[in-house]
């Protein structure tokens, strides 16, 4: 009897920490085959490469916890950055030529991201359509609008404030890593320690009963999609700062990477269950796979196979362990 209970407790903790265990296993695997994998600078590389995905995953976690989804974030990033570029670019350069971009890029980019996220929520609230449909609609419309506004020329940056976020280093680590930690901390505190977080979880548990018991579904939707838009804008500012250019392909496929990170991190697409730390670890796991395969010079097409298999394994383990705990 006691043995059975201990066993169950052990499985429960295994379920909780299965992702960390998996991450450690994969790191050990790569470290054993690639010497430069396990160094401090490579750690910084991995974390700074994961920062954008991880930050967007924080916002996405909010959306998925209320049992909805946001597939517009790649297009949203492209549009928010295009708006910010238009406002903040120092005029004078010809099309395609590198130009300086001033610090207005930050407030405008963040505001645009937040606003576009709220547009998603308002569409769902006012038109009463499904979240997947609403964000599918904005997926098309946002990218179309971005291209219409700024065209497809590369917008490379001269050294200017736009690169500050992507390229600054503090105490030997990249600034995006600190931003990631800060966003994760704020996201986790709001989710775990405030009424807003409790509402979000409750709504995800059951949207219908949540509305019947008087939970503010419409307002919480604004919070979730607003957070998703804002986090995506931060991620966008990091990416353009890191790569030093704004291209028309920015954000294509980003939604799938971020959703995968969140799901691998143990957040249920059925809503009501999930953590910020899980999503961050999920994003890091994905980058670790890329980074490790990169360092051992693996074939490019293997990447998606590995990611798909890991996604399924992670989810199957999670589901099986969870079932075991409940029984």
């Amino acid at each position: 009897m006691i043995a059975a209970r201990l066993n169950r407790a052990w499985i429960a903790s295994l379920q909780r920490y299965s992702l960390i265990v998996m991450l450690l296993l994969i790191i050990a695997l790569f470290a054993s085959v690639s010497r430069p994998f396990f160094t401090v600078t490579n750690l910084d590389n991995v974390l700074s490469q994961a920062a954008a995905t991880a930050i967007a995953a924080v916002g996405m976690t909010y959306v998925i916890i209320i049992a909805e989804i946001d597939i517009s974030i790649g297009a949203l990033m492209s549009l928010a950055m295009s708006v910010a570029w238009m406002v903040a670019v120092v005029p004078g350069a010809r099309a395609g030529e590198a130009a300086a971009v001033n610090a207005w890029v930050y407030p405008v980019g963040l505001a645009a991201g937040l606003l576009l996220g709220l547009v998603n929520a308002l569409l769902i609230n006012s038109l009463r359509i499904n979240a997947l449909i609403a964000t599918l609609a904005t997926f098309f419309a946002f990218r179309g609008a971005a291209l219409k506004m700024v065209g497809a020329d590369d917008k490379a940056f001269l050294p200017s404030p736009v690169m500050f976020l992507g390229r600054t280093h503090l105490f030997g680590a990249s600034l995006p890593v600190f931003v990631m930690i800060a966003v994760a901390a704020v996201g986790a505190v709001v989710l775990g320690r405030t009424p807003v977080g409790r509402y979000l979880y409750a709504i995800g548990g059951s949207q219908r009963s949540a509305v019947e018991t008087g939970l503010p579904l419409g307002r919480m939707r604004l919070v979730a999609y607003g957070a998703s838009g804002l986090c995506t804008a931060i991620a966008g500012l990091i990416i353009v700062g890191q790569v030093g250019t704004l291209q028309s392909g920015l954000g294509i496929g980003f939604e799938f990477t971020v959703i995968t990170a969140v799901v691998v991190g143990g957040t249920s697409l059925l809503g009501g269950r999930g953590t910020i730390i899980g999503s961050i670890l999920g994003a890091i796991l994905l980058v670790v796979i890329d980074n490790g395969l990169n360092l051992i010079n693996a074939s490019v097409y293997i990447y998606d196979v590995v990611k798909g298999v890991i996604l399924l394994i992670a989810v199957v383990i999670d589901v099986l362990l969870l079932r075991h705990v409940r029984e």
Binding site: T41, M163, Q242, V243, G244, N294
Partner: peptide, 30 residues
């Protein structure tokens, strides 16, 4: 960007880089 960072990590004495398209120059500079 990720690939160039990783390459510089694995080979601090890297001597040259061939870039297949100018669109990838800004991340190389970075």
């Amino acid at each position: 960007l990720a690939g160039m960072e990783n390459a510089l990590e694995a080979n601090p004495d890297l001597g040259a880089v061939f870039v297949a398209s100018d669109g990838m120059l800004p991340p190389v500079w970075s």
